[in-house]
Amino acid sequence: MMRFYKVSVFILSLVPVSLLLYNFYTDELGANPFETLTRQSGEWTLRFLLITLSLTPLKILLTKSWPLKFRRMLGLFTFFYASLHLLTYIWFDQFFDWNEIWVDIIKHPFITIGMLSWLILLPLAITSTRGMKKRLGRRWKKLHQAVYVIGVLVLIHYFMLVKADYWWPVLYSLIFIGLMVFRVLYIRQRLTGRFGLKMLLRQGVKP
């Protein structure tokens, strides 16, 4: 049964990219399809990142372990959409002009931060296998906590893109902050026993 769920989530995760490519070929992405590809792949990266980060809180809330079974796959899809996003920039914005890309990275913090986020994401994707997890032991967890840094960087990157209407980056930031606050409160409660958030939430879910 778990296998069925995993395959379903895998297929669902491919829906956004499939729709994007289909609409690209049928010329349904508007007047500036290349910009749409870049925007959409970037936004899906952020969505997958937030979905991935919500699995641990979900596990705690449900007191079930199954959400964590999807963590690696959804994390890798975050990397997949991030790489697509990067590719659209390298291809449609810069046409593989590496010199130009380098200048852009150095001169414009907006690009610097986006690039940095992908670079930090890369080792997490590489070490996502079971073998690497075993080999790295305790360091694996430390390394993968870098995902929180990526979250912050990606949101800054999004804020920097916007000219005046901050509605969407603010909304995504609130979700991210919510997920982080949940973790902090949960850890604090485990360490000190104070703050009965866990109990409260459990009672909410299982009365």
Binding site: N32, E35, D104, H108, I111
Partner: peptide, 19 residues
Amino acid sequence: VDHPRWSQRRERRIGEFFK
């Protein structure tokens, strides 16, 4: 003269692929 967040050296004319 760059925009602080991006270069203004090139542009995409709507309907074209290359900048």
